[in-house]
Nucleic acid binder design. Structure first.
Lengths: 223, 223, 223, 223
DNA sequence: GATGAATGAGCCTTCATTCAT
DNA sequence: GATGAATGAAGGCTCATTCAT
């Protein structure tokens, strides 16, 4: 029917265009994880996305822009994820901190492929101001959120602890644990990593966090 | 003296070659820090080292080998540095842990240029097994040393703490603080970073480490 | 007419690509003849074909493949030529042998440029198995055809001659005469060369071939 | 002893120099046969001769000169060989022609390695005047010698044969049979090749050469 | 809107050659 | 006399990008 065609077609087109865009970004993520940043070529990306080579230049003005958009996609996805984790109603500050830790090691954001891409971008950041800007903004948001929570905990418990420093310590610990997954996937343990973070929190804020029980870590814990 | 000349001459030849090699590695480090991994070309490296382009392939069979040797140089330098820090006689286990923290934030190893290079290699590690191997070995050495120290502290103090996990937490925290220097150099503070680590240690091992005093962080602390 | 346009358009695209391919092969032949095998660079080839340098790698995966395809083009062209020469209806075996000799010295296949290219490939054959394979197959086809003809003549005439050896002798004589054209173009004579072959045939098969008349060779016979 | 040293040394030096030169030429021949003309580099040659790379440029002004001297060495060796074959006293013209055929298929000059080198030079001849000159001179000498012999035979036997053409036919046949050894070593037969030449001679000059007996060629005749 | 032939820039590498030792 | 570090030129190839279709 002409009417359906008229309303469906324009939608379909715009939709399809967006789908292709997302496919290209996904393919870029895959390629960076598999081949590294230096060996990620538009040829490989378009092959992964099953589209013609020149289509990449059609959707993104340049390779650089594809990369930036990929990084943006990554940060957006990450922000959405942790924000959702702490917006659950009825959560105390400490509960939210716990939720952040859980989110940071959730397989959806903390898997080897995505970590590899994060580190690939970080590795190139120093020489590419745009990357650094995007990374920094994402970082600052996450940092602020965490700092607000530690500040609340400090205030509640009357701890003699620098809340900002405490937050930074936790954040950095998480980043470092991600690196562990990247470089030594065999020795990475998802639950163990969370436990390390919680130990840190419990040590700093004993009246808000429970020291995790000493668990015999099972050999070959799945990452 | 003729003898000295006789011994100096043969040294000069081999020495000069080695000097050139080191210059090339240094130039590679500089280039990766300045231009990133992907845009580090042999042209840039040779230009930085003030030598002809083909000389690179004379000293190193391929670009890949130059990069691997550069990474190796980096790990060697790092290992030498922290090892020297903990071999000072008369140092307790806790003292050695403190020394490790100091070493990790010493400007000689913890400056933005070198951190950028570390992260550049880590960023490419997933897709280059050789890099990962070299990185992992270096990491394991450092981890083992640190774990031995935390185990000693745990034993001494009778703490109910998983020594391996405690060490891993510290190590990851340090890696994450390095990333802070890379991505947000403005907000990085050398002393503040050490303090965060020491807070972690003091919280876990209160009878071995003193909680650092709350210091008003000076605005714009120089990295 | 729209129909013609519709059929002409799709042809045009594929056609143009094929035309460019053939131009590149022709340019390769020219370059090998002019500059030799060792000094035939893709730069020279693309310049001769008036196309960009990278186009060569677009049509042929590598330089090596361009060379192989050039050799194949040569053998195909040669085979087509001599096959057509002996498929003329109503030709006796002896007549076909004569036709083969004529074909082998026809200016279209026996000119200094093409002979130079043949010898260039033969010169590299020993160290390049692919060339040898292609050359051998072409040779074997030609040899088989010729052997069948000599066998027929031997059977018809009841000659006490090894048909295979006779064919090989003729074939080798032709190859050697080609070399004469390559190395001593001044002393090469097209008709004289055919006469030498026919003398060989007439000496072996007197009842099938006429001994060519002794001709006063004109001085400086044009090749 | 000083005296012996004084007399032996200078001789030894010049000798050694010449020895090295010959080694380099031999290594060049080997390399061309093994790697082809295009892939024969001074590096490979010096490695084969077990000398330092820059020594080649010391003994020969340039690579080109090394190649020319190698070709000259080849032609000299060949000339010496066939000349010696026909200077045996008490040999008739026909006997000398037979001796030439024997020489041309003697393993010392007719083996796959040397044939490969001949063809390598011939393959490059068209674009390198120097090679062509050297080749042509060698060819002309051989041709003249053979023409003198066929002329003698023609005169002796009163044959109605063009002596020059007959010689050219034989020469070309030999060159072509060499190519057979190069391209189809499996089907090459040393004795069979001589027989083909002798059949040609016997067919042209029946009163001077005996038609070789029809021999059942053994399968897999050793080249 | 999407394809694919074509381009130009640039990279890694190799090679013949030189020069100081 | 011979070595080996060093050079400059050039070659093959890949890549991001454009343009006609």
């Amino acid at each position: 029917m002409p009417q359906r065609a008229a309303t469906a077609q324009p939608l379909k087109r715009a939709e399809k265009k967006e789908v292709t865009r997302q496919q290209l970004i996904a393919a870029t993520v895959d390629s960076i994880a598999a081949s590294g940043f230096a060996e990620t070529t538009l040829h490989k990306v378009s092959a992964r996305a099953n589209v013609s080579r020149s289509l990449v230049n059609f959707h993104f003005d340049s390779k650089e822009q594809l990369l930036v958009e990929t990084l943006r996609h990554l940060t957006d996805e990450y922000r959405t994820f942790w924000m959702k984790a702490i917006t659950r109603p009825g959560l105390s500050a400490a509960g939210k901190l716990n939720a952040l830790v859980d989110a940071d090691f959730h397989p959806q954001v903390c898997n080897r492929k995505k970590i590899a891409v994060w580190y690939a971008f970080w590795g190139e950041s120093k020489s590419r101001p745009t990357y650094m800007e995007v990374c920094e903004r994402a970082d600052r948001e996450f940092a602020s959120a965490m700092e607000r929570l530690t500040a609340e905990v400090v205030a509640e418990g009357g701890y003699a602890v620098d809340a900002v420093a405490a937050a930074k310590g936790l954040r950095c610990m998480i980043d470092g644990l991600w690196l562990e997954l990247l470089l030594s996937p065999a020795s990475f343990e998802r639950e163990g990593s969370k436990r390390i973070c919680r130990t840190y929190l419990a040590a700093l804020f004993p009246r808000h966090f429970e020291m995790p029980g000493q668990v015999e870590m099972p050999a070959g814990g799945a990452p």
